[in-house]
């Protein structure tokens, strides 16, 4: 195995040998790897997820704290993305072949291919203090580009100052993540709605004398939503990947930021649990999506 975690816990110095041996046996690093893994699995089911090599706190405690911030970031940006994505997708579906459709689809595919970390870096440079744009445009805002609230406000406290500051710190990361995932959603929304628009019941709805807006809201959108929900659920792994990059760039101390730190210190209990959490997030997202679909589409039955 490359990288000996014990070295990251205890310095390689003879005078620490006793402590090191103790730590190795404490964390079970002296046992064969398969045995370590079986023990890990056993503990997984008994909700004992091990201690971090780093600060010896339970892995679950550390990650629960991080998870909150990651959920805030992913949640905000997903809601933002879905709302804007649906609006853009719907509008370009109606204006199919017109300039708006052409431009939004072009920009969409362009954004779709943009590495999220790079987008984050560019936005960070554009909105930092004394950015180039501030030289050109006097009212250009400077936004916080790192952390999730001002260091001077420590410790975290549920007062208006903290919440407002946390919101400010959330702006850029959420914007980056939204822009990075927006294109996929609006493109699929567009195609899905165009699909629905060719259905006969849409002609029926128009024949009833409904206005285009009514047709869209009552008949097209409700039928375009189910595929969107499945898609977003499928994409959750991708969105999480984006969130990781954003957290690293903006030093936003959620799970992604913690992952990079854990890699640096070879903190395997932490890393393993991060993967478990990631998988769980995807499973939970898909379960939620299934429930949502059940509600959105009467043709789906519990089997």
């Amino acid at each position: 195995m490359p990288g000996d975690p014990s070295l990251s816990i205890i310095p390689r110095d003879p005078k620490f040998r006793g402590l090191r041996d103790y730590m190795i046996s404490f964390f079970g690093l002296d046992r064969p790897q398969w045995e370590q893994f079986v023990i890990y699995l056993q503990r997984l089911f008994t909700l004992d997820w091990g201690l971090s090599y780093q600060d010896h706190r339970p892995v679950a405690d550390i990650l629960l704290h991080d998870l909150g911030w990651t959920l805030l970031l992913v949640g905000t940006s997903t809601i933002l993305t879905v709302l804007i994505g649906i609006a853009i997708g719907a509008y370009s579906a109606i204006r199919r072949g017109k300039p708006f459709d052409f431009v939004s689809t072009g920009i969409g595919i362009f954004l779709y291919g943009m590495p999220i970390f790079w987008l984050g870096l560019v936005l960070q440079s554009a909105f930092r203090k004394n950015s180039v744009f501030q030289g050109w445009i006097p009212w250009w805002p400077a936004l916080p580009t790192s952390g999730y609230y001002d260091d001077r406000l420590i410790p975290w406290n549920w007062d208006i100052l903290h919440v407002a500051d946390a919101f400010l710190h959330l702006l850029l990361p959420a914007l980056t993540l939204s822009l990075g995932t927006l294109a996929g959603i609006s493109l699929v929304m567009r195609n899905s709605l165009i699909d629905v628009m060719t259905e006969d019941f849409v002609t029926t709805a128009r024949a009833k004398g409904l206005s285009p807006r009514q047709v869209l809201r009552r008949h097209i959108l409700p039928n375009g939503m189910p595929p969107m929900v499945s898609l977003i659920a499928l994409d959750i792994a991708f969105i999480l990947g984006g969130a990781y990059q954003v957290e690293v760039i903006f030093r936003y101390q959620g799970i992604g930021f913690r992952t990079i730190e854990a890699i640096g210190s070879l903190d395997y209990p932490l890393l393993q649990f991060i993967i478990v959490i990631g998988g769980a997030a995807v499973v939970i997202a898909n379960l939620l999506a299934d429930f949502l679909l059940l509600w959105l589409d009467p043709r789906i039955k519990i089997s």
């Binding site: 006969d200 029926t204 024949a207 009833k208 008949h219 409700p222 039928n223 589409d297």
Partner: peptide, 16 residues
């Protein structure tokens, strides 16, 4: 003036 389309499967909104 109203209309009845061919193949009523698709002429009715499936989720309403």
């Amino acid at each position: 003036m109203s209309i009845v389309f061919q193949g009523a499967m698709n002429s009715l909104n499936p989720v309403q």
